[in-house]
């Protein structure tokens, strides 16, 4: 059954996947195993995206299916989701109020086992600094859509440096207008302009093989 569920998720059969997951749990299935199956399916969706077989619409629909299944699966797992690859503080940088890229990344990062602390949009440098102090993440993820965000990314990295926090973390920048030039300008460790690549690079930054 789990194999069929896996295929349904990967094939974007939203209704079929959700109903099968419900059926599996109602029949006494193991919620943890279900979670693992969903994670694996999301991993494959990400790989298909990176290979050019899937596009943003499939990432978004895959994320939607995952969220829908998790809604009734996670409460059934004692102590919640235990697997944690690492912790990411994630936010859209100052002066940018877009959330779509950040939100797609967040679902895929969580699906692959990261704990994500989402600090929102239009996030001032100080708020990133505070969040790093408070949550001690392994990775800081900064997102932007508009070009003004590029400069905010640089200022945020600088603020983390000034606060003496840069050494202990890895920084990934992401978003529609982000490229290698932005990574260098901002002083980040990695960049991605899609969620699949972003999650793969986060694993690499943690020394985990994708």
């Amino acid at each position: 059954m789990l194999e069929e569920l896996f295929n349904r998720i990967v094939d974007m059969d939203e209704e079929g996947a959700v109903s099968m997951a419900k059926e599996y749990l109602e029949g006494g299935g193991d919620a943890k195993k279900l979670l693992e199956t969903c994670r694996d399916a999301m991993g494959v969706i990400g790989q298909k995206f990176e290979k050019g077989e899937y596009f943003l619409s499939e990432l978004i629909l895959g994320g939607e299916i995952f969220k829908n299944i998790m809604e009734f699966t996670l409460p059934k797992i004692k102590g919640g989701d235990e697997k944690k690859l690492g912790r990411i503080v994630l936010g859209t940088v100052k002066e940018d109020v877009h959330n779509i890229g950040k939100d797609i990344f967040k679902v895929f990062a969580e699906a692959s086992g990261f704990e994500v602390i989402d600090i929102g949009i239009d996030t001032p440098e100080e708020k990133f600094v505070e969040a790093v102090k408070e949550h001690k993440p392994d990775i800081v993820g900064m997102s932007c859509l508009i070009t003004a965000g590029v400069a905010s990314m640089k200022r945020t990295v600088d603020a983390l440096k000034e606060a003496g926090l840069r050494e202990g973390i890895k920084i990934i920048v992401g978003g529609g207008r982000v490229d290698e030039g932005v990574k260098q300008y901002a002083g980040a460790d990695a960049w991605a302009d899609d969620a699949a690549k972003g999650v793969r690079l986060c694993k690499e930054l943690m020394g985990i093989e994708g």
Partner: peptide, 9 residues
């Protein structure tokens, strides 16, 4: 012409 080049180059 990438904007990152004009900003960061």
């Amino acid at each position: 012409i990438p904007m990152s080049l004009i900003v960061g180059g």
